[in-house]
Structure formats: structure tokens, C-alpha cells
Amino acid sequence: MKFAILVNEGPYQHQASDSAYQFTKAALKKGHEIFRVFFYHDGVNNGTRLTVPPQDDRHVVNRWSELSKENNLDLVVCIAAAQRRGLLDENEAKRHGKNANNIAEGFRISGLGQLIEAGVQSDRLVVFGD
């Protein structure tokens, strides 16, 4: 079965991203397809490569990046929500005259249409938030 995942909260502050990660991992293990993981609201903060958690804690951002690499996951960060919160990829940084970008490996920035498309194309959409 084809699943889409929506993550509405950032890392660490809420459990949403952890729950979404555990769910996604379990779904993949069961042989389901993850059509897309879409990050919205503060959820976009799951996609910043500048995150440096204490060494004895899980690395929420890297964990998503690794899961993406292993399973060819499409991790999409909402562009409008990302811009508000200071998350940019190389193109967006250039376009807005910023001297740095902070998108993590495996994530890409795109529009809200990607969330709707995920809802249309997937058999199920599961929302994790606060």
C-alpha cells in the first residue's frame, strides 16, 4: 500500500517527528511504499543540516536523511513554511540574496501542491503533529 506522511512539528520540541519516523520505518519494513514525507508548519525544521544535538541523543535530522538514502524516500519541505522559518536551499538562498543555505541531505524544498498531490496519489495520508 502507498502511504503519505505529513509532519507538522519540528524536531525535539514535540514527539511528532519521532512518531512519524518510527511509523515510516515500520511501514517500510512491512513492505509498504512511502510516496512522500511532507514537512509543514514547524515541521520544516526537521530539514536543517545545522542541527547539532548532544552526542547521547538521537539525531532527528540525520535519521530522516539516512532513512531517505536507504529507501529512496522523498522528503519534501514546504517552501512557504520554510522561508518564514529561515530554511533555504541553494537556489532559494540565491534568489533571496542570502549568503548561506541550510537544507539537509535528502530533503528538497517544494510547494504545497506536493502535499495535495501526495494525498491524491497515496492510499493513505497519516498526519503527525501537535
Binding site: M1, F3, N8, Q22, F23, K25, A26, A27, K29, K30, H32, R124, L125, V126, V127, F128, G129, D130
Partner: peptide, 20 residues
């Protein structure tokens, strides 16, 4: 249930609604 059964619950119900 565990996470795997959470996945099964989602698969066996045609609609999922989160009460955030």
C-alpha cells in the same frame, strides 16, 4: 499495539483522522 500494528491499523482503515 506496536508501531507495526499501528501501520496495520492505517492500512485496514480507508480514512485516518488525527485529532491534534
Amino acid at each position: 499495539v506496536d508501531y507495526a500494528e499501528f501501520v496495520d491499523l492505517v492500512a485496514s482503515n480507508s480514512t485516518v483522522q488525527a485529532w491534534l
